[in-house]
Amino acid sequence: MTRQVKLNELTALLETATYPLSVATARTEFNDVQLVYADGSESLPTVLDRINDEQFDSPDEAQSSIYNTIPVEGVGEPGQSEGEG
């Protein structure tokens, strides 16, 4: 079963993992997660495939790397509040 995770819920999801966390382990651990964007969705493992880091030392580091990789269109229009609705 696929877990649908909005971007404003990503921190809570990442905090469930044990750190340091390799990107390869993150792909496996979160293989059922679909990130829900403002304009669609994408699987978290697909996003992790675009990350050049080998491991994350904390949930904050993982979130930052993921946010730097997702498409700008995914977070909505400039000035739009994330997660409303």
Score class of each variant (00 low, 15 high):
residue 1 M to W: 11
residue 1 M to I: 14
residue 1 M to T: 15
residue 2 T to P: 15
residue 2 T to H: 15
residue 2 T to S: 15
residue 3 R to E: 15
residue 4 Q to P: 04
residue 5 V to E: 06
residue 7 L to G: 00
residue 7 L to F: 05
residue 9 E to I: 01
residue 10 L to G: 02
residue 11 T to R: 08
residue 12 A to M: 06
residue 12 A to H: 06
residue 12 A to E: 14
residue 14 L to T: 07
residue 15 E to V: 08
residue 15 E to C: 03
residue 15 E to I: 03
residue 15 E to L: 02
residue 16 T to K: 03
residue 16 T to P: 02
residue 16 T to R: 01
residue 16 T to E: 11
residue 16 T to W: 06
residue 17 A to R: 09
residue 19 Y to E: 10
residue 19 Y to W: 12
residue 20 P to L: 10
residue 21 L to V: 07
residue 22 S to F: 09
residue 22 S to H: 08
residue 24 A to S: 11
residue 25 T to G: 04
residue 26 A to E: 13
residue 26 A to Y: 14
residue 26 A to R: 08
residue 27 R to Q: 15
residue 27 R to L: 03
residue 29 E to T: 15
residue 29 E to Q: 14
residue 30 F to T: 06
residue 31 N to E: 14
residue 32 D to S: 11
residue 33 V to F: 09
residue 35 L to A: 09
residue 36 V to E: 15
residue 36 V to F: 13
residue 39 D to K: 00
residue 39 D to A: 00
residue 40 G to T: 10
residue 42 E to K: 00
residue 42 E to M: 07
residue 45 P to T: 11
residue 48 L to P: 07
residue 50 R to S: 12
residue 51 I to V: 10
residue 52 N to W: 06
residue 52 N to M: 09
residue 54 E to K: 03
residue 55 Q to P: 02
residue 55 Q to Y: 12
residue 55 Q to K: 12
residue 55 Q to A: 08
residue 55 Q to E: 15
residue 56 F to N: 01
residue 56 F to S: 01
residue 59 P to Y: 05
residue 60 D to P: 00
residue 60 D to W: 03
residue 61 E to N: 03
residue 63 Q to Y: 06
residue 64 S to Y: 09
residue 64 S to D: 14
residue 65 S to N: 11
residue 65 S to T: 09
residue 66 I to S: 03
residue 66 I to Q: 02
residue 68 N to E: 10
residue 72 V to Y: 13
residue 74 G to E: 08
residue 74 G to K: 02
residue 75 V to C: 02
residue 76 G to E: 07
residue 79 G to R: 03
residue 79 G to D: 12
residue 79 G to V: 07
residue 81 S to M: 13
residue 83 G to E: 15
residue 83 G to L: 05
residue 83 G to A: 03
residue 83 G to K: 01
residue 85 G to V: 04
residue 85 G to D: 12
